[in-house]
Design a protein around this nucleic acid. Structure first.
Lengths: 148, 148
DNA sequence: TTAAGTGCAAATATTTTGCTGTCAC
DNA sequence: GTGACAGCAAAATATTTGCACTTAA
């Protein structure tokens, strides 16, 4: 299952074409923003970035595209411990799922990959007879710089 | 499936007294509802249950009390994979943290305790030099009854 | 007594939806 | 050409806040 971690621009759009999902200018812009993001973005931030390319794109189009991506399991929805606000953050689903670690003081978000997480999910599937489609582990606390 | 440890009614109120946090009738009612809950409740459900005891309690009081409890680390805030709605669910913090497993088809929520989760958190603390105060692992997929 | 808490109403934040016109295929 | 999609405006949902009154300690 695991593929390289690197972002391949255009991969979301390729997925859409393969499945016969219509690609509009607006969707293309949203996909591009998500694919090229260097940090976790919420719906408003995605909208703002999309509007820099096409100012006429509406907020509801962003939400509708996010729903579509969620339904197809192409993005993950995060809370990031609600570091600021009650909304959600989005990121392209990576081949290797990672933990999100949020410093409650400085707000820094760290991503952490470990096989222990994979093992834990396998254990849940086995012990609970459960087929995992999506999982989310978020941790809040103090980073090394803030804990002193 | 392992259930959470037994609820000790009055423990939240005891915590408040010890810390000199004022206990009002309204807070007492909210604490009692949370302590005696048998399933995960959102703010509206808590309000409804509280109002069965004291109909004059306002929604904002519930939210303010939830904030207070969160700040003191006495409750956990959950999304439960947004099985219904965008709001949050709350539960008393247990000594042993557990995983929340949500069936995306039937909506059933299962709780699961395993030492692998504890180990994973220890590993994060060690490898990331991070002091964990709160953590949340939610899993979505299909339960054994729904996967066929 | 008095600082903290409450209800109320209104504001804010976030997400969804109905409808009409437009565009990708 | 046509069905899916977009923009717009409004609604729905979720949470917070300012203020005057009340109450626990």
């Amino acid at each position: 299952m695991p593929l390289p971690e690197t972002q391949i621009p255009g991969r979301l759009q390729a997925y859409f074409s393969e499945r016969g999902i219509r690609i509009t200018q607006q969707r293309r812009a949203v996909l591009r923003v998500i694919e090229t993001a260097t940090k976790h973005l919420d719906a408003s931030q995605i909208l703002r970035k999309v509007q820099r390319v096409d100012a006429s794109v509406d907020r509801s189009t962003v939400y509708r595209t996010l729903q579509l991506l969620k339904r197809h399991g192409l993005i993950d929805e995060l809370d990031l411990m609600h570091i600021r606000g009650e909304g959600h953050y989005y990121e392209r689903k990576m081949n290797r799922e990672h933990i999100h670690i949020a410093c409650l003081r400085c707000g820094k978000i760290t991503e952490f990959v470990t096989s222990t997480y994979d093992k834990l999910k396998q254990q849940v599937e086995k012990d609970c007879h459960f087929k995992i489609l999506v999982s989310r582990l978020e941790v809040g606390g103090y980073c090394s710089a803030c804990r002193q």
